[in-house]
Design a protein around this nucleic acid. Structure first.
Lengths: 240, 240
DNA sequence: AAGTGGTCTAGACCACGGC
DNA sequence: CCGTGGTCTAGACCACTTC
């Protein structure tokens, strides 16, 4: 039987969808055993490798745990981690109202280090975008994004107020994101950062520098984020 | 042709090995294109799916980047991240001499929260192990490990001075590690921590809480680590 | 012994990139 | 156009856990 994409989605994605849905509906709770590879293959009429792909990917995302000889089990609800999500997506998953305040938007040409990270010549023209992220009424994070001014000209303030940066880049500029390489460390908040985040100067904040890579193999975005450590935990699953 | 494990290793691991070796020898530099799936399959006499597995796993570990229609390329040398390694392994990869000083080793039974994280009844007897990690002569991190005292009885001070905790658990107790779920955030160093790490009190440190899961599906180890932020960066690759 | 995940085959077609 | 990675088949055997 040849591959027939029922809704444009790969079969393994559809299979994941059915599992995730049952999880969200509460029909599947942490610790519960999930359909085995063979059961999934039979149910969805796919081969073992395809069913396997669905489960293996879910494990990498932290949704399930697989144990040889035993089965695949629903993982504790650590919120889909290990998955690249925009700030908006992350918070909406947690059911928190999100907003974001544009602090500045402009073009600069003096950030050599950032230009280098974007794989551009030093002194390239860059768009710099500073935003304060709010959950409810409280500030959560301060994010500074850098993009090539040539590749993404026409990024307007008005548009940014309405839709997420990720959406704009995807829909208006045809950018497709492949992965992000991130450097995570801790630092203390300088007076201005502290004021914006509503914390005392010298508080510890989580600093995440993201190089967001497009499927074209270029670094499309460089993001420097400072996250209130009392409101944030980064969740990661690492494998042996 | 049936599967014949030449050295006990799966074929896809062997293929990864040949690539990693060429990388370490400098025959392959960042940006270079790597053998394609089809080339690898032909060279190693395996099927496409197996060659594919080798490359896909290397991408998840951050060693290479894959681009449809273009090829697989060597990634910038961010050090094998996204891989679960003991502290010793991590530092030796970076070519730094490592040592570690045992600060304390004892049995406690009052850490309810830790017991819960290990999936044990509250007031279970736990081994608590505090170590100061040094790179060269400088302190890098403070690590506190918790294990079930019943499962890992006989853990001695003498043995810990010679070999890594991971090795002991693997060889002496037959523990095999599957993955670690980690919570990462930032905090400030209290006076005692600051003194041990050789930093000023109130400095920002990276805090990583690890739940290390065995292949048996249990949390075998709970580790609380405080890392000097001026000496550490956590590297992560996240996918869309 | 039965069932599970882990590895693997020998092919296939599709979607995409670069020439 | 050709080569690349992405998805997929319809099986197979192995290693392991649970009973």
């Amino acid at each position: 039987m040849p591959q027939v994409r029922k809704n444009g989605l790969p079969a393994y994605r559809r299979i994941q969808g059915t599992i995730v849905k049952r999880l969200e509906l509460g029909q599947l709770k942490p610790g519960d055993i999930v359909d085995s590879e063979r059961e999934l293959a039979r149910i969805h009429g796919v081969s073992l490798m395809t069913a396997r792909h669905a489960l293996a990917a879910l494990e990498r995302e932290g949704m399930v745990v697989r144990r040889r000889g035993a089965g695949t089990f629903v993982a504790p609800p650590k919120i889909h981690f290990n998955k690249l999500m925009s700030y908006t997506e992350q918070m909406s998953v947690r059911g928190l109202g999100v907003s974001s305040k544009l602090l500045s938007l402009g073009v600069i040409d003096t950030e050599q280090e950032v230009a280098a990270r974007l794989g551009l010549p030093a002194s390239s023209r860059l768009i710099k975008l500073e935003r304060l992220r709010l959950g409810g009424e409280e500030p959560f994070a301060l994010e500074t994004c850098y993009l090539s001014a040539d590749d993404f000209s026409g990024l307007t303030r008005a548009r940014l107020d309405r839709v997420s940066l990720f959406s704009i880049l995807e829909h208006d500029y045809g950018l497709r994101i492949a992965h992000a390489d991130e450097e995570v460390d801790a630092t203390t908040a300088d007076p201005q950062t502290a004021r914006l985040l509503g914390i005392s100067p010298g508080s510890a904040v989580l600093r995440i520098r993201q190089e967001i890579h497009s499927t074209k193999g270029k670094v499309a975005l460089y993001v420097l984020g400072l996250y209130r450590s009392d409101r944030h935990t980064l969740l990661i699953r690492r494998f042996r």
